[in-house]
Amino acid sequence: MGPQPSAALARPALRPSPHAGPAAGPADPAVEDAELARGLVAGDEDSLATAYRRWSPLVHALARRSLGDAKEAEDVTQQVFLGVWRGRRTYRPERGTVAGWIVGITRRTIADALSARTRRLDLLASAGSSLPLPDPGRPEAVLDRVLVGHALAALPLPQQRVLRLAFFEDLTQPQIAERTGWPLGTVKSHARRGLNRLRGSLEQELCRP
């Protein structure tokens, strides 16, 4: 097992600054790409930090353009550079530049984020009318929120946590896994079981005279 990312991969350190300059100018031009690549492959955290300073504005811009959401773009940027670190030994200079390799990781990560968004929408749709989204213009909106809130509160805590993160914080299942530290399969299982229980509970509430 290779060295694990340490302080160089702490979340605050990898968040793109809102004042970051354009991607065109490398933050540290003295470090050549080939040397940077060798450092990354060898597990040098300073090389990772340099790569982040140099290319995170580009990664963030590509993600923001594709996803249309700044927070999701920040999450994708984090995931991309974690992917750079974890997959550093797969880099092959004969196949292209470090920048091109990072852009390739970015495109795959964006595609994963878009797929997760679609799955989340499908998950919400699968609940159908059993999960009414409150309409502020309807007097029943408060009742809807109360019913959903009570139904969620009756779920086992892991299922409740997953569904609250999905519905109220709009997190994808991979993001929920990252937030909770649970395996993605566990998150999916809790979501599926929680939705089934939630649907049944709401149907009982709505059918009461």
Rank of each mutant, 00 (worst) to 15 (best):
T186Y: 10
D135E: 00
M1K: 10
L62M: 09
D170I: 12
D122E: 14
E94G: 04
N196P: 02
A61F: 12
M1C: 09
P139T: 09
V142A: 01
K71I: 09
R64M: 05
P26L: 11
T180G: 14
R119M: 13
Q204C: 01
Q204Y: 03
P57Q: 07
A23Q: 07
V146H: 04
W85K: 06
A151S: 09
R193V: 04
Q175T: 09
G100C: 13
V162A: 07
A10H: 13
P132H: 02
S130W: 00
F167K: 03
H60Y: 15
I105A: 06
F168H: 11
R64S: 13
H190L: 11
D46Y: 10
A61E: 15
L147E: 15
T77V: 02
E178R: 15
R192W: 13
L131H: 05
K71Y: 10
R199E: 08
S201K: 11
R161T: 01
H150G: 05
L195C: 04
S129T: 07
E35A: 14
S189Q: 13
G25N: 12
L198H: 06
L114P: 02
G43I: 07
P209M: 03
E203S: 12
E169A: 06
G128C: 05
G2W: 13
A125M: 02
D46F: 05
D69G: 01
G39D: 12
D112R: 15
Y91T: 00
V59E: 00
L58Q: 00
Q159W: 01
G104Q: 05
A27D: 13
G200E: 12
L202E: 02
R64H: 14
W101S: 12
S130N: 11
D135P: 06
Q175F: 15
L147V: 10
L155A: 02
V162E: 05
T97N: 14
R88L: 03
G104N: 05
L82H: 00
R88H: 09
A30F: 08
G96A: 13
D112C: 10
G2M: 15
G181Q: 03
P132M: 07
S6R: 08
G39L: 01
W101Y: 14
R161M: 10
A70K: 00
L123D: 12
A191I: 07
L131G: 02
V41Q: 13
R95A: 08
G21K: 05
S115T: 06
A61H: 15
L40R: 00
A153L: 02
A113P: 11
H190C: 15
P158T: 10
Q204G: 01
V162S: 05
P18H: 08
T106E: 00
L157W: 04
A49V: 10
R65Q: 15
R192G: 07
L163M: 10
P5T: 07
V148D: 00
V187G: 01
K188T: 11
L123G: 12
R117Y: 14
G137Q: 07
A7S: 10
V76F: 10
A73T: 03
I176F: 12
L36N: 04
L152G: 08
V41G: 02
P29T: 11
D75G: 02
L198D: 03
V41F: 06
N196I: 12
D112G: 13
L82S: 06
S201C: 11
S126G: 11
